[in-house]
Each structure stands twice: as C-alpha cells, then as structure tokens.
Design a protein around this nucleic acid. Structure first.
Length: 137
DNA sequence: AACCTGACGTTGG
DNA sequence: CCCAACGCCAGGT
C-alpha cells in the first residue's frame, strides 16, 4: 500500500474546506484558496485537489477561477459551459470568457472598488463598447 | 532518474 | 496581447 503523508492529507482537507466556504454568487482564484488554506503559492495543488475531489462532496468548483478571472477550462469545452451555466445561476456573469473579479471576487475587492478596477482597466466606460468577441483562439 | 503534463501564478520582454 | 521563464506540487511514462 502507498504510505500517505499525513501532512498532505491535512493540506487537501484544508483546501476542500476553503472551497466549500466560498459564498454563492462569489468567486475566487486557485491562488487565493491556497493562501487561505495556509499554503500560499500552492495554486496548482488546489487544482489537483479539486479535480480529485469526489462528487459526493458537492464542492462549489464552479466558483473557482484563474487569477485573471477566466475559467480553467478551455472555452467551449464541457466543463467551461457547465461552469458558466452554474455561475449564471448565481448571478455571476461571464463576459468575454471572463468574470470581473473586482466585482464578484470573494473579499479583496474593496481596494479594487475604491482604487478602481485592477485587471483590465476598461479605458472608458463600456458605453456599449462592442469589444470584439475574440473568436475562440 | 530524467522528462512531460496539468482545473495555476507572477514577472518581464 | 502573446510568449517565455520560473516557481510550485503530484503523477504518469
């Protein structure tokens, strides 16, 4: 049998716990989860844990996005569509394959709201800026 | 034991 | 905006 590292078990448990505590209608990143779980920099591990987590746990995986607000799944893929669908059901809209973290981010959006958008500082108000829908790369 | 590959992130060109 | 280079962890070849 394979010896299981007890420390590793705690990591996974902590990570799952953090994911399970993401409030509906809010999203966060892999890195943020890793940090909250006590292991900053282990974003990759979060992805693995999420992928191996049994469905019975019913973790809100759809509320986990990349640091830039895009889904970890390829646009158009099965997972991508399902994630977008679930998020939409919670009032989180995905525009241009991306979620506005400054708006739906799980805490940490205060300074962003006060200092202005952090990621893509939309030059001017999006007064109907058609922003080409970037035909799938 | 190298080498590759991911539900990742940051920095620098 | 795209790409490359690292840093990171665990598994598979």
């Amino acid at each position: 049998m394979k010896s299981v590292d007890p420390d590793s078990v705690r990591q996974h448990a902590a990570i799952r716990r953090v994911i399970a505590s993401i409030p509906p209608g809010r999203v966060t990143s892999y890195g943020e989860i890793a940090t909250r779980a006590g292991w900053p920099g282990r974003a990759r591990l979060v992805g693995r844990v999420l992928g191996e987590a049994p469905a019975e746990l019913a973790l809100p995986w759809h509320r986990v996005l990349r640091a830039d607000g895009r889904s970890a799944f390829a646009p158009g893929s099965r997972g991508f569509r399902e994630q977008v669908r679930r998020l939409a059901g919670e009032g989180v809209l995905v525009c241009n394959a991306r979620v506005d973290l400054a708006l739906h981010g799980w805490e940490r959006n205060l300074d962003a709201l006060l200092w202005g958008p952090a990621p893509s500082p939309r030059k001017k108000a999006a007064t109907a800026a058609p922003r080409k829908t970037r035909t799938a790369r």
